[in-house]
């Protein structure tokens, strides 16, 4: 250990003072004039804190907070577009003194799907793809953060961002309903169910979008991928359901509805959350079909998470 050109390792030797700092100028004697290296003796927090920090940072990033003014424009505009109709609905309800909201929170989310789709198409690549494109992931995985924690934080952040996006209009509708002096118990019940819908919708859609974004690190591809994944199946389902209805094969519409995330949520909210179905003929899937809807949703969420985990196995370092 006495090699001349090697200072004794301060830590191994147990002196505590950093090498290169003269004895006597330890931590306590440090002043503002001391620009030498200082060892970090403060707290080191665990996995929960790290995961939370990453989640919050990603969530803020999706809305452009802590980023340039330019990157705030799109998410904030979309947010305004998402909330404005709710405000109009409220205004109409109050002015016309209607006995109920023209559309429930769950229906509102389904109606606004195109806007949500655009938001997700912008948010998922921002939250997920950037680390892959700039190859920042090794800096995370070389830290005390497991792959599953990284995936949980990223997925969680995207789901939380989407929940905020969908739940704020729900809150506006609820506030409006109370303002219009509609039945409190009724409205609170609807609102609660609406929030459940928003949560389920967010977790499912964020999962699918995240999985797509994680596999398309290149700019633009993720945006296109997410939009295609949500719109094409939805329109296909709507068209097929329309045809089935035309042919008087109403029973088939439920099964066709399984084929897109949007119609999946539609079926679930109609069966379990007391909303009106937007399926042709306003048909509500019976309980058995609804259970299949729920199972498929759970499988899709688990599958998205698994795909994400697998994606980062290779991006480790």
């Amino acid at each position: 250990m006495n090699t001349p050109n090697t200072p004794p390792d301060a830590r191994a030797a147990g002196t505590g003072a950093p090498a290169g700092v003269a004895p006597g100028t330890g931590d306590s004697a440090a002043s503002i004039h001391d620009i030498g290296y200082r060892n970090y003796t403060g707290r080191r927090l665990g996995g929960g804190y790290i995961l939370r920090s990453l989640l919050v940072q990603t969530l803020r990033g999706v809305y452009g907070l802590g980023r340039s003014a330019k990157s705030k424009v799109l998410p904030m505009c979309l947010f305004a577009v998402m909330v404005l109709p709710a405000a109009i609905v409220v205004a109409v309800t109050v002015v016309t003194e209607a006995s109920d909201l023209p559309l429930s929170q769950s229906e509102y989310v389904l109606t606004m799907q195109p806007v949500i789709g655009i938001f997700l198409a912008a948010a998922a690549p921002q939250a997920i793809s950037l680390d892959l494109r700039h190859r920042t992931t090794p800096l995370y995985f070389s830290r005390p953060l497991e792959r599953s924690e990284y995936v949980t934080a990223k997925y969680g952040a995207l789901a939380a961002a989407l929940f905020v996006f969908t739940a704020v209009p729900a809150v506006v509708l609820y506030a409006g309903a109370l303002l219009a002096k509609l039945d409190f118990a009724d409205q609170t019940g609807n609102f609660a169910l609406g929030l459940v819908m928003c949560a389920l919708f967010s977790v499912l859609h964020a999962g699918i979008a995240a999985a797509i974004a994680a596999h398309t690190p290149r700019r633009g591809f993720g945006v296109a991928g997410v939009i295609v994944a949500f719109t094409v199946p939805y329109f296909l389902v709507s068209a097929l359901q329309g045809i089935a209805w035309d042919q008087d094969a109403l029973g088939v519409t439920g099964w066709i509805g399984l084929a897109s995330p949007g119609s999946l949520m539609d079926g679930i909210q109609a069966t379990f959350l007391g909303g009106g179905s937007t399926f042709p003929g306003g048909r509500t899937p019976p309980l058995g079909e609804g259970a299949v809807y729920l199972l498929l949703t759970a499988a899709l969420i688990a599958g998205s998470y698994f795909l994400l985990l697998r994606r980062y196995r290779k991006a480790g370092l």
């Binding site: 970090y40 403060g42 707290r43 080191r44 927090l45 665990g46 804190y49 790290i50 920090s53 990453l54 940072q57 802590g66 980023r67 340039s68 990157s71 950037l130 700039h134 190859r135 920042t136 090794p138 800096l139 995370y140 830290r143 005390p144 953060l145």
Partner: peptide, 23 residues
Amino acid sequence: DCLPPDVTATEFVVHLARMSGLP
């Protein structure tokens, strides 16, 4: 290269310090 281009060095290093568990 592993640095996102639209972030400042300070923000980036602060974030990664937190990822190492620093308050």
